[in-house]
Amino acid sequence: MTDWLSPEEWTAVRLSLKVALVATSASLLPGIAMAYALERGRFWGRQALDVLVHLPLVLPPVVVGYALLLGFGRRGPMGSLLAEQFGVVLSFRWTGAALACAIMGFPLLVRAIRLSLETVDRKLEDAAGTLGAHPAWVFFVVTLPLILPGIIAGMVLSFAKAMGEFGATITFVSNIPGETQTIPSAIYTFTQVPGGEGGALRLAFVSVAISIAALWMSEWMARRVRRRFLA
């Protein structure tokens, strides 16, 4: 089964999946919290925060990668702090690739959750309050189930973004086979060397297959959730 992809290609596929899964799951909770804060919160600087979160959507990915390099690189303020205090190194590591992918996918995740939060009938939450529910309980029992389709959609978008992320990743963590070489960087490398067309094509097919599978799975999950929870 493994013989139609070379070991290097398999490594890139496995790494891509790992990076995308870690990036998506790590940004899930902050994403929900951010969407809730931006949609419901009334605090000073909310608009500025909104802009900041959405910045990766409009900035050139290379700029985001460079900013990460400045901030989270070995000598960057965050990077040196993390390295000294926790022994966590991000630059030129797969964890750095996951961070870059998470940041690039974050606005998509937040947007999707926020849109579904917007459609939640506030009266449902009000009613829970009048029936004796604590606000935290209201969130977990009423709000969260209602925004589940939005959360699923956001996770799929974030995952897809991570699978395809190139500019920020290559700028921040370079293109090291086995460590930071994800499918897009591997395809890029293949296209740069003579005779690499086969590998590029095979990885492109894998990429398409993973994307279709992700879309199909999200549709299936969203439909299940809708059927279970919503009209």
Binding site: D121, K123, L124, D126, A127, G129, T130, L131, G132, A133, H134, V142, P145, L146, R228, F229, L230, A231
Partner: peptide, 20 residues
């Protein structure tokens, strides 16, 4: 006093039933 501690129950125009 927050709504939950007022010992009331409210019926809304839109019914506000939980769809799930």
């Amino acid at each position: 006093v927050p709504p939950k501690d007022r010992d009331i129950a409210m019926v809304f125009q839109s019914y506000a039933l939980y769809p799930h």
